[in-house]
Write a protein that binds this DNA or RNA. Structure first.
Lengths: 249, 249
DNA sequence: TTAAATATTGCAAATTATTGCAAATAGTAT
DNA sequence: ATACTATTTGCAATAATTTGCAATATTTAA
């Protein structure tokens, strides 16, 4: 088999799956992983792909570039996302935060739903590319590289300009008296801006986070409209929140 | 068997399989591998195919759906990017626009260079993820989905907040009297904001774009500091720009 | 932190290219 | 047809490239 044939296979699979693995290619092409590695290096030098540990990804970041970073395996979050989808209605303005839960919601949105989404998350913007009727308004700011979200004062100011119908905010700690809190100062500040810019606030959490608190304050608990967890809606721990007028799902 | 007949067979098989192997052809054509090699060399000289180790592949290689990626390897733009890299200095604040030229520059930046990059392009932000010492400030705004850049008033306002050292702006039309112009209204507006926020402005263009004009105005030509093209710096057409105090590279 | 997975490097074997050359072939003018 | 020349072909020696392997780093995940 010619080297060029291997190149074709590699690029072709990359075009299809948006990623290739060394071991897999080694099997398919019947050559050693070393050779595949060398092939990938050569293609990378030509700018045709980007070599990464264990394989390669497309070099020009297309629609799927950020999506592929997500772990979709988490069943809890998937349950939460499915529950959350019921709350979005056609024509709304929605704020999505940068967590993986919100990402799964975006992923699950009907392709023909008309929506305006305000977000500070590259992955979410990337996912919504395929949703033709969704207009994406992206919050500028300083880029947090590992998580691909923007933060900082600019981001906050951007969210403040909106009055959204609904806001999906990922897992923070929620405590009846201590309020909603998060582990990172700047991200918590951004979350507050999101929450304060929205009429309806859907908190996405797991039961373990209920009744706990962390260092940085986001908002009072009674500001939440709904708390979505991965559990049935009739747990005892939910009572205190229900009594505060929060819908538990 | 005539040489021409062999040529026919080779090209025919190439059209069918997108590849030919020396050993295989040697069998089919009943001639030595050396002869096949020489045949292929001759066809390659005529530009009818591309000779590779062990055989040959079509001259414009690869399936068509990779055209966009192949365009990435565009030699012209690579030349331009290499020239442009000399202008970036450690510690600067740089504005990058959303074109592929600017993308190639970002890609070529030394991994250890300390830099602040302001951009409205997802791909550029993504490329710069690996550059640990580069801080990325991302301009918010309405997301243009197909090209993954933000545009609109918000984007413009974001750029206006900066006073950058250097700005890399991709191919627009450049005319001595009519100024710098572009084919899209909103993108041209954003480009203007970028240009007006920077001390030094490096225009990335090809010689064909020089002396032409399009519908939407970006800035006066003499506002440009440098024009980088894929050609040597001593062309006659460059004189008019040099006389305006613009550095031609 | 350790343990596992992946990368890098150097190297020898296998494959393919290149070169020079002599024999075979084809073309041409007598 | 013959002699002559130019081209083509196959072969052999040599050079270059590619490939897989093993030993050694390096990175990642737990």
């Amino acid at each position: 088999m010619l080297k060029e044939e291997r190149f074709r296979v590699i690029l072709s699979q990359l075009g299809q799956d948006h990623k290739v693995h060394l071991a897999e290619l080694s099997n398919v092409l019947k050559v050693s992983e070393d050779t595949v590695r060398r092939d990938i290096k050569e293609l990378a030098d030509q700018g045709l792909l980007k070599s990464v540990r264990g394989g390669a990804v497309p070099h020009s970041p297309g629609p799927h570039h950020f999506k592929d970073r997500v772990e979709y395996g988490n069943e809890q979050k998937r349950i939460i996302a499915n529950k959350a989808l019921r709350f979005v209605k056609d024509g709304q303005v929605a704020i999505f935060d940068g967590g993986t839960s919100a990402m799964l919601i975006a992923q699950g949105l009907p392709k023909d739903m008309h929506l305006t989404v305000v977000t500070n998350s590259f992955p979410i913007a990337s996912i919504l590319e395929e949703h033709e009727k969704v207009e994406v308004l992206f919050a500028g700011g300083r880029l947090l590289k590992n998580s691909f979200v923007t933060i900082g004062n600019e981001t906050i100011q951007y969210f403040r300009k909106f009055r959204a119908d609904i806001c999906f905010s990922g897992i923070c700690s929620i405590h009846p008296e201590l309020g909603v809190t998060g582990p990172d100062y700047e991200e918590s500040e951004v979350k507050r801006a999101m929450v304060e810019s929205s009429r309806e606030i859907i908190a996405l959490s797991t039961v373990e986070k209920l009744g706990t608190a962390e260092a940085y304050y986001v908002c009072p608990t009674n500001q939440l409209t709904t708390i979505i967890t991965d559990q049935p809606d009739n747990l005892d721990v939910f009572e205190i929140y229900k009594s505060m007028g929060i819908k538990m799902v």
